[in-house]
Amino acid sequence: MDKIYLENVSYIYGEGTPFEQTALDGVSIGIRAGCITGIIGHTGSGKSTMMQLLNGLAAPTSGKVLLDGYDVNTTFEDVFDAWKSLPEYQNLSKSAAKKAIRTEIRRRRKELCFRVGLVMQYPEYQLFEETVYRDIAFGPQNMGLSEEEIRARVLEAAAFTGVDTDWLEKSPFDLSGGQKRRVALAGVIAMRPEVLVLDEPAAGLDPRGRDYIFDGIKRYQRETGSTVLIVSHSMEDMARYSDDVIVMANAKVLMHGPCEEVFSRIRELSDIGLDIPQITRVMTMLKEQGFPVSEEIYTVDAAVEELYRLLVKGKGGNAT
């Protein structure tokens, strides 16, 4: 079954104002459990909105967001329907019942945040504690875990994201940009979310910093079997790390499928103005010059194979 399912979801910003803008337009899509799914598209294509819907930070204007088949947005009626036949509930006074339902909604919302971990763009801005340890522990603490459990989770998250144990007692503000980013990522991973959602996790990092972050995400996904969603501009990064890819354009899902399948439609991707990998451009140009190469290549390794075959086979042909 799909881990997450969006059922005809629309989201409209500033409804009824002159600034009204449709960010998602009747999107229906399922996200496979235990995979890394990349979401690519332009700024304003709706991809960042989509991730805020997944953990209830925003509620869809219409449609449903399902996690394991259950709607992530709890309404007053939902709780009331579930509770109305319970004797404990019926014994409550009207105002106490209302209050209890509100508390329950809040509890469920909070629980959702722990199940669907959200790493925002430039997450290092969220660091605030005196030590790295305490910052990573912030999420687990809000979950109400015991001290030992918190400790175990912080150490585990630090190990996943490559946060040095030496840093744990340092101030997060003394770390470099790339290191802070890893601490921020650890702060979300420490909640052990079933679904990890990341918005441009490598934005602004140098190649080494980028590899650290992506390797950490990959390790977490592989060892815990979590579902991961990564919003990104970079087809190069997504080609390297994701299993499935969703392409968003104009508030709609344009393509969705396994990485190879989506990226093989590179022409269409290029047509909607996405930044296609440099290697694909090389292959396309060769093809245009009349060489029998595939254009559907988006990794350096594949390009090497393709050209190696051609160049070596060509050599063999000449010899005979």
Binding site: L57, K110, C113, M120, Y125, Q126, F138, G139, N142, V188
Partner: peptide, 12 residues
């Protein structure tokens, strides 16, 4: 943005 980030970590 910061409020959303902390809410996502369970801040109330």
């Amino acid at each position: 943005k910061i409020m959303n980030a902390q809410k996502a970590r369970g801040a109330d």
